[in-house]
Amino acid sequence: MSKIDSDSHGKNKQPGKKGFSRRSFLGGLGIGGGAVATLPTGLLVESQAAAAPAMGPGPIPVALRINGKVHNLNIEPRVTLLDALRNHLDMTGAKKVCDRATCGACTVIVAGRPVYSCSMLAVEAQGKDIQTIEGLAPSGKLHPVSAAFVENDAQQCGFCTPGFVMAVKAFVDRHPNPTMDQVKKGLGGNLCRCGTYIGVRQAALDAARQMKGGKNA
C-alpha cells in the first residue's frame, strides 16, 4: 500500500525538533498505529507529561499564527491543531476523517511541511507558521492547485479534497518538476473514498507546470 510512503515527503516529521504528535510518539516506540487500540491511553498521557512542562488540564492560553495572522485561544492542552482550527476558529477546510494520521484529510502546512493536523497538538504548533487551505487564496481567486483540481475533476464528494490540495501544494513546492512516479509516491499520504486519484495525479502535474518559478506560490 502506498500509504507506507506517507512520511516520504516529511509529513509530521520535524527534523531536529522533538514533538509529541501521536504519530511521532508511536513511531518513536517502534510500533505501528495498529497498536493504538491496545495501548492504555494513560501511557500516552504520561509520556507526554514527561516530555513537556505540566499544562492544564483546564484551558490554557494558546497563540497560533495561521495564514499570517495570530489567533489567541484559551483551550485545553489536549486539543489537537485540527480541533483548534475546526472547533475554535471555525476554519473547517481541514477535515476530520480518520483522526489517526492515516488519511490526510486534515493536512495543513506547518513550517513549510505538510502535517496531519489531527495528530499534532495545538500547543505544539505555537510559534510556527501554519498555513491552511483558507489562506491559499486570500483574494478569493483560486490558487493554481485548486484550479487544477477543478479542471481535472479531481474531486467528487470533496471531503478529502482540501487535504489533498494542501498536500499537493506542499509537494509541488518541493518538487517543481515532478514525474508521475514522484506524484504517486509523494501523495501517498492522502486517501480518497470516491476514487479521484486519476484526476488528482493530473492536477498535481498541471499545478506544478502552472506554478513554475514560484510566481503563484
Binding site: 500500500m1 498505529g33 495498529g34 476523517v97 489517526r100 492515516t102 486517501l191 486519484y197
Partner: peptide, 9 residues
C-alpha cells in the same frame, strides 16, 4: 480504523 481497514492509495 483507517490504518488497517485498507483503501487503495
Amino acid at each position: 480504523d483507517m490504518e488497517f481497514y485498507k483503501l487503495s492509495g
